[in-house]
Each structure stands twice: as C-alpha cells, then as structure tokens.
Amino acid sequence: MYETHYHRASSIQDAVKLKQAAEEGKYLAGGMTLIPTMKQRLAAPTDLVDLRHVAEMRGIKVTGKTVRIGAATTHSEVASSAELAAVCPAICGLASHIGDPHVRHMGTIGGSIANNDPAADYPSAMLALDATIVTDRREIAAGDFFTGLFETALEDGELVTAITFEAPAKAAYQKFANPASRYAMAGVFVARRDNGDVRVAVTGAGSNGVFRHRDMEAALSSNWSPDALASVTVDASDLLSDIHADATYRANLVKVMAKRAVAAA
C-alpha cells in the first residue's frame, strides 16, 4: 500500500471539511473495497477520512412505511434489523448475502452505493425501491444516481449520508452468485407498490451497471406472477460478457432470477 494519511471524522461537516483539505482524499466507510484496492496499489489516496465514528450517519429509522438508513450502517445491521424486517424484509435478505460475515460487520450501505460496483447488490435495491440518496448537500433520486460502471452523480467531495425509501407492498431480491467471488453474476430486485406500480432492477449483468427492465415491469404490472415473465425478452446485447458467463447466459439468468424474485416476494 502507498503511503496515506488517516483522519477520523466526528460529524458530517467535519468529514466534508477534512476531505476538502486533502490533496486527493477519499472517504473511508467500512473499507471492504477500498482497503483491498489500496493493498493492490490500484488506488492511492493521499488521505483517508474515516466515517465509522460519525454517529449521525449510523442507524435505521422506520416511521410508518418510511425507512431511513444512515449511510454508515453496516450490512449486518441492515440484515438483523427487526424494525426493517417488519416493513421490507427483502432489503434485510439482500444485506445478509453480501460478502461474508466479516465483510458484513464492516461494509456499509453508503459505501456500496457510492462505489457502484456493477456486481454489487444494493444498487438494484435502491433503483427498485425508488430510493432517495441523501448527501451532505442535496437529495438525489436513485434513478439519477447510478450513472455507469463505478460512476455516480456524486460531485467531488460530496458525501452520501443516508438513503430513504417508502416500503413497498411486496419485494424480493434473488441473485446468482459467482461461485468463487460471490458477487452477483445476475441479481434482480423486484418491488410492487400498493397502487400496482412495479419496478424491476438488475445488477451484475448490465454492461453499463445497474438498470431497470421496463418490459418486465410492464408485464408484472398487469400480472404479478412468475409466468407473466415467460414472454418477456431480455436483450443480451446490453449485457456483460466475461470468462464466468457470456451475455446470452446472463440474459437467461436475469429472467430466471426475476421469476424467482417474484415467486419469493
């Protein structure tokens, strides 16, 4: 690892100030992607601003159907929250299958969405739940937030502080994990609102990162059942191809995972 300078932030304001003062700083949440990346010398921030001790960025608050999750809340906290499980068990289930237990004790929801790894699980939940990403300076709709592979709408120095969403009537997430890395080769989050609106978001498969599948959404809006997806086509031309799975294989996986998610919701 190249040399770096560690700073521990005590508040959101403090974190933003520390980052601003740094030459080429990075926010450090759980560090479950950033530290391994730095160890490989693929990233070399001059400064790290540790967010783990920013109390106002931690915790889960459920008010009626409105959910607010602090950005520094860990995957294990999301996975084991009884309050959250009562209104949206799908997001708890998703968090309980990220990485391994040790990663879940450190990794955070804010870190995951700010990194926007095309095979990360959370971005699909954010899109399908029509979540709002709260930052130190504004609120961004999930639909505008994820802009490409490892790319987001965040400005330089902008810090994700929380995410909020309205719990849907039904939701579920299903992924086909790479047998070695456990990252999603295709993951599909489906959510249905009381008014019948449906959102289907796909991770792990899109060549431009997480995306919504409008044809599946239309099919499920008129008929909420796995069978409704039988006639929908998943276009392989926009999907990733790599040594683990080519685009055609992934296209099939997307459909299978979507069916399983609807059946599980």
Partner: peptide
C-alpha cells in the same frame, strides 16, 4: 479469513482494516 480477529465484539478481517481504524 486466516487474519480474523474480533473488534468491539465482532469478527473482522485484520488484513482489510487499518490499525488506525
């Protein structure tokens, strides 16, 4: 996971955590 220790009661990978953290 050969490096797993407990930090404040929870298992973590000490190879992916800075001493400063």
């Amino acid at each position: 996971g050969a490096c797993v220790v407990h930090m404040d009661g929870m298992s973590v990978k000490s190879c992916s955590t800075l001493a400063a953290q």
